[in-house]
């Protein structure tokens, strides 16, 4: 079994090629202590819709609630976070350094307005899940059809 690399990208021939390329490079470079796990500038986000809610989820291992900010304006969700470096990190000898560090801001625009008052964010085992209820005006309404 091949160990998939941490992040997957949408499939397209180009990406496929890039992945092969990356794999080639990783294999060639692994002997020279290259980073086998591509590191991103900001964590990836998954968003899905279920009924009257959207759910946005991000993997932010190592962050506590105090290191995260989540806010909603209209139909826009913003997630900010910061990994605090250890005090004398710069003087330490790193044999591998693949984990994310530094600060990030992600802004997502959702298809409809959100009910900002009822947004709920939960952090568990390094996964942030934000529940985003749709604004009342944006919810699907069932219209009763009366016979004339």
């Amino acid at each position: 079994m091949l160990l998939a690399r941490r992040y997957r990208f949408p499939m397209s021939p180009f990406n496929e090629l890039q992945r092969e390329f990356g794999r080639l490079f990783n294999n060639v470079l692994s002997d020279f202590d290259a980073c086998p796990v591509p590191r991103r500038a900001a964590p990836g986000i998954n968003v899905w819709e279920a009924g009257d809610n959207f759910y946005a989820e991000a993997e932010v291992p190592g962050l506590g609630m105090d290191d995260l900010e989540v806010f909603v304006v209209g139909n826009e969700l913003t997630i900010k976070g910061r990994w605090n470096a250890e005090r004398d990190d710069d003087q330490r000898v790193f044999h591998r350094r693949e984990r994310q560090r530094g600060a990030f801001t992600r802004v997502l625009t959702l298809p409809v307005d959100l009910d900002a008052e009822k947004v709920n964010a939960v952090l568990k085992d390094g996964v942030l899940t934000v529940t985003l209820p749709k604004a009342e005006t944006a919810r699907t309404r069932k219209i009763a059809v009366k016979s004339a």
């Binding site: 993997e59 330490r92 044999h95």
Partner: peptide
């Protein structure tokens, strides 16, 4: 199965390995 990102730091008396295992 995914390969987690790790940091390995060498200190005077020990190595510290940190692995991201979100979820």
């Amino acid at each position: 199965t995914f390969m987690p990102g790790v940091d390995i730091v060498e200190l005077d008396n020990e190595y510290v390995l940190r692995a991201d295992l979100p979820g």
